[in-house]
Design a protein around this nucleic acid. Structure first.
Lengths: 140, 140
DNA sequence: GTGTTTGCAAACAATTTGCAGAATT
DNA sequence: AATTCTGCAAATTGTTTGCAAACAC
């Protein structure tokens, strides 16, 4: 019932997201795409991010704090969030399917999956903290 | 510099939370405590939940979808969220410290911990889905 | 032409905050 | 008396939505 039609705005959003590995927020994507389509609205960005997520072309990362982030990488991987600068980065791929079994032990429902993110200090912040440097917020 | 003074409202919030295992939202707590202190405001509830969380007396559960939830259980345990009714429940305690090591392999930052929740169908919804019954939203 | 998408602004939900007065120490 | 906490309302943040015009098929 719902046909999806082409739109240059959506294409631009997708392209931008594919070019990044820093998992931008809707706002960051808005700012970037506005360089090309100055009249695009934040509502359009949100609508397209939702649509693309529903179609399995991108994924939404809800990390609790702050705005949601988006990722064009669709292979299974986990995310790391730096507690100091707030940046979100990909971790090398690893298999953690076994934790669903673990969690199912002694639980009477059906475990279908999990959502996990890791936190700590990214490489840069590890170094900066050692030097007692100031915090550089990379997160919005 | 910041002394914490007693308040009956905060005590009531803490008491209520200790009596529950369903991880209520700020709104649910507000509704409950209002039975005892009809003039309490939602702002006060939020302020106290934040304070209690900072003091390590309770914990906040951000599960991505919808409002944050709160938990008075402070021993390490994981949460399960039913994708059908939205209820949040505790899982039997288990040790998953090893996944931090796993995640650290090939990553140049420092992993300090993780945040995980499991999802699927709770016992009741597993049964109801089998019978083709209607969804009973338990979540706000 | 019909149906989908857009820009804009207004609406919304969850949470936070400023302030004057009340409660705690 | 000094400081912290409260109720209230207004402000903020992140996101969604209604609508008429523009665009895709």
């Amino acid at each position: 019932m719902k046909a999806v039609k082409y739109s240059r705005q959506r294409e631009s959003i997708k392209e931008y997201l594919k070019s990044r590995t820093d998992h931008p927020t809707a706002d960051m994507i808005y700012a970037a795409v506005r360089q090309i389509y100055p009249n695009i609205s934040l509502g359009t960005v949100y609508r397209n991010l939702t649509l693309l997520t529903e179609q399995g072309e991108i994924q939404k990362i809800s990390c609790g704090e702050g705005s949601d982030r988006f990722d064009a990488r669709m292979d299974k991987h986990y995310h790391f969030i730096c507690r100091r600068c707030g940046s979100v980065m990909d971790l090398p791929s690893m298999d953690m399917n076994h934790i669903d079994i673990l969690a199912g032990n002694g639980f009477d429902g059906r475990i279908e999956g999990h959502s996990t993110f890791f936190y700590g200090l990214c490489k840069d912040c590890k170094q900066l903290e050692k030097e007692g440097k100031e915090i550089q917020e990379k997160r919005k």
